[in-house]
Design a protein around this nucleic acid. Structure first.
Length: 202
DNA sequence: CTGGGGATCGAG
DNA sequence: TCGATCCCCAGG
């Protein structure tokens, strides 16, 4: 088991990239870390979906629609967009690209790396295979809430991304859970690490 | 498969 | 103001 340097953060300027480049070159295989209640929890990002800003009918900011909820999507890349849905879950996006281009990348699944004991508590005894394999689950496991992290700087010391140490093999698929989202619902904008078991849906 | 749960935002 | 909808999950 290789030792991870949790201070080896992805630099601010990487977040200015196009979202598709960022997912493939930086995000998949990187480690998402939080410190909440004094505990470090972290997981390797194994699956993510691009929400391609103004031109994506499944994106909250389609046609530059700006509301109180999605306002942080319009900020400069390198912040978290966390929102509440289905009455009980949070979901987290990484915002990328220059300010004014509301591109988000939904983190869909992680492979647990550190803080497993705390994750098990927060996930109410779910089996380890299911601790972080879904956008709602991983927010529970890392205690990512809107109050704490919406708009948070991803190069900070409460929530951040650590650079990956190897280039993963990447596969693509249709996005999940957007059946009623118009023209772009079938775009192959879901990306995941080939052969990794920590994927939310096959 | 089902239903819970509450914020959200456009329609009225 | 109101209510259909929502990038989901646990349980059966």
């Amino acid at each position: 088991m290789q030792q991870i340097d949790f201070s080896n953060k992805i630099e601010k300027e990487k977040y200015l990239k196009d979202p598709f480049d960022f997912v493939k070159e930086d995000l998949l295989g990187a480690c998402l870390c939080t410190v909440v209640d004094g505990v470090l929890t972290a997981g390797k990002i194994t699956e993510a979906e691009v929400y391609y800003g103004a031109h994506d009918s499944a994106c909250h900011a389609y046609q530059y629609r700006k509301t109180p909820r999605n306002a942080v999507m319009f900020e400069e890349g390198g912040v978290a967009y966390v929102y509440f849905t289905y009455g009980m879950y949070f979901q987290m996006n990484v915002i990328v690209s220059p300010a004014g281009e509301p591109n988000g990348i939904l983190i869909r699944s992680l492979e647990p790396v550190t803080g497993l004991e705390e994750m098990r508590k927060r996930r109410h005894g779910a089996p380890d295979k299911n601790l972080t394999t879904g956008p709602g689950k991983l927010c529970q496991a890392l205690k990512i809430t809107r109050e704490a992290f919406n708009g948070a700087d991803l190069t900070g010391d409460q929530i951040w991304l650590v650079k990956r140490d190897e280039t993963p093999k990447i596969k693509t698929a249709k996005r999940v859970g957007i059946e009623n989202s118009g023209k772009d619902k079938n775009k192959p904008w879901r990306f995941y690490i080939k052969d990794n078991p920590f994927i939310s849906k096959k």
